[in-house]
Design a protein around this nucleic acid. Structure first.
Length: 285
DNA sequence: AGGAGGCCCTGTCGGC
DNA sequence: TGCCGACAGGGCCTCC
């Protein structure tokens, strides 16, 4: 599942391929991904536009578009959902299975492939407007985290995953940063002492930053024809040797030894999502 | 209004 | 071996 680091790495990869290109046409194969707009609305909205930039906030990605002879730009917002992939290919190449939408760029095209159709491509900006501070941006300070965790009685893990407060953390990285900061996922968010808030802030920044740097170094298979090798959502390109599976500290490791203390990692459930944690390292206050 | 829970969707995996 | 049900979980919607 792509979270902030994966989306940022994808953004960096796409930017040089897309900026300056003109959109010749827009084709929707899975109307669900453009909901609630119609394929026709999207086509009318973007055809003939040129791409001025590629942006990101949280797990949302967007293309800055401008109509011909216009200086004003607007967003074509894209969310990868659970299984979305976005990549550039030659226009002559066959479209892969589960292609949801295609942006024609002359000799090339931008393909959005999404087997589970949880992703979205849209011109509306409501989803973007409702996002909280991006977890990698300079505005994400300790104070912002403290404010996001204040007042509510929600468990800290549930709160961290609420994109309206902090944007970018999904189930995987939330488990990872809570373990790194030695915070119980069940701790009431507002009860977290300042020291732990600081540790959590540090863990979030370090973990996401490190993962982005790693992703930028690797040769990745954005098209997703190859198998993910478990290291990164996109998987390695075939030209690169598979990476070791040493990736997550606790996520998906139920029953395995905690990398810090050796205790068995436990899986629990919060808001219908799996939570992986070490009951020894991550005790409630 | 904030929070909880259901729904969407299909590849993968475990069990029989 | 093969089939089938359970599971995974982003965001979004509805209800309380």
């Amino acid at each position: 599942m792509p979270e902030l680091p994966e989306v940022e790495v994808l953004r960096c990869n796409l930017e040089p391929l897309l900026v300056g290109k003109r959109i010749s046409d827009f084709q929707v194969l899975k109307p669900r991904v453009v909901r609630p707009e119609s394929p026709q609305q999207l086509e009318n909205g973007v055809a003939g536009c040129s791409i001025k930039g590629v942006g990101r906030k949280g797990k949302f990605l967007w293309l800055d578009l401008a109509k011909a002879r216009s200086r004003t730009t607007f967003h074509l917002t894209i969310h990868l959902g659970m299984t979305g992939r976005l990549f550039v290919q030659d226009s002559g190449d066959p479209l892969p299975g589960h292609t949801a939408a295609v942006l024609g760029l002359g000799r090339k095209r931008l393909v959005f492939r999404d087997p589970r159709s949880f992703g979205r491509v849209t011109l509306e900006t409501d989803s973007l407007d409702q996002l909280g501070v991006d977890a990698l941006s300079d505005e994400f300070l300790v104070e912002r985290l403290r404010d996001a965790l204040a007042i509510t009685g929600q468990a800290v893990k549930v709160r961290l995953m609420d994109q309206r407060h902090i944007a970018g953390l999904g189930n995987i990285y939330v488990c990872e940063v809570l373990h790194l900061a030695r915070v119980s996922p069940f701790e009431a968010a507002s009860k977290l002492p300042l020291g732990k808030v600081k540790a959590l802030h540090q863990a979030i920044r370090n973990t996401l930053q490190k993962q982005v740097e790693l992703g930028l170094k690797l040769k990745l298979d954005f098209a997703g024809e190859g198998k993910s090798d478990g290291l990164f959502y996109f998987g390695s390109a075939s030209t690169q040797a598979p990476q070791s599976r040493e990736r997550f500290r606790v996520y998906g490791r139920e029953g395995e030894a905690c990398p810090t203390c050796g205790s068995k990692i436990v899986r629990a459930e919060q808001s219908k999502r799996g939570t992986f944690f070490c009951p020894q390292c991550q005790q409630r206050e």
